[in-house]
Write a protein that binds this DNA or RNA. Structure first.
Lengths: 149, 149
DNA sequence: GATATTTCAACATGATCTTATAGGATTTAT
DNA sequence: ATAAATCCTATAAGATCATGTTGAAATATC
């Protein structure tokens, strides 16, 4: 299967949630709230946020009144960075990542194909920032409200 | 991880191998030979070839002297078809495939992003035929020979 | 200083998927 | 009849996914 893992999907929603609460001195967000809003267990969120913290995409504030905030402005965080932190690298095949993975790499007719697909995917996720996703969310919300009226 | 499974990779090499032996009344290829050439166990190849057979990308000939041949001409077999047979759908996320997978789908700001990536991947694999991969393999072989001289 | 809140860390567990191997049944050319 | 193949089913190791448990460390607030 070519499938984005739950880590990547849940982590993106986690970051989106933080981005939506981001801005002018807003307080830190606790995982409990994200868990409730996104329907993901706290335990799993705790695991997912570790690589995001290591890659400085989020900052943690310990103790009472603590929580998490974005490490940078949403306009400065690319989706490719989020996925890279969570999924390791985005390579579709092992051999595009590790040259020693397969000794046939120099004569493999399929190598270039997988590599090309990988680069295309990466470029796609490079073009999308957290700010874009927040805007997309706003758009959807507006549409939903318009429908109700 | 976004990763192509071994089924997809091995299956593509299997099909490439058949394509390289394809043409004017060539006899059927047995898995034993593909196993030796590609370094993949026969038992595993047997499993991989089942969906290829179901999707009529290969034809099987049972009994002694039997083996496998391509179901159609290499120029008429798209890589996307091979991967679709082996990987189910190429959808990067479950929800792009199954509308009932997640009830938030209508309001999910990330849905369109994953869907877009999926469509881009599919279009990429749609443009590549088995014939193209055979040509690529020829090119690599020529280069290797030139190097030796 | 005591308490409550929250992150942080190290495991453990079960479910499911992926990867790979194995044994034997069936079909067919010779 | 025999040998050469595909075909079918089972199974096991390992990885991933998701939750749970226990508790330590940090910090705001009373």
């Amino acid at each position: 299967m070519i499938r984005l893992s739950t880590k990547g999907r849940y982590g993106t929603r986690l970051m989106l949630n933080l981005a939506q609460h981001h801005g002018n001195g807003a307080r830190a967000i606790i995982l409990r709230d994200i868990s409730d809003e996104e329907g993901i267990s706290i335990r799993y969120l705790e695991q997912i946020i570790i690589p995001l913290k290591i890659n400085r995409l989020v900052k943690s504030i310990r103790g009472a009144g603590g929580g998490y905030i974005l490490g940078r402005d949403p306009s400065d965080i690319k989706l490719s960075e989020i996925l890279h932190a969570l999924e390791g690298n985005l390579f579709l095949v092992e051999c595009a990542d590790d040259p020693n993975y397969c000794e046939k790499i120099d004569t493999c007719p399929t190598f270039e194909i997988w590599k090309g697909a990988t680069e295309m995917l990466k470029a796609y996720f490079d073009r999308i920032t957290l700010k874009d996703i927040v805007a997309q969310a706003e758009k959807i919300k507006k549409k939903a409200r318009a429908k109700v009226r």
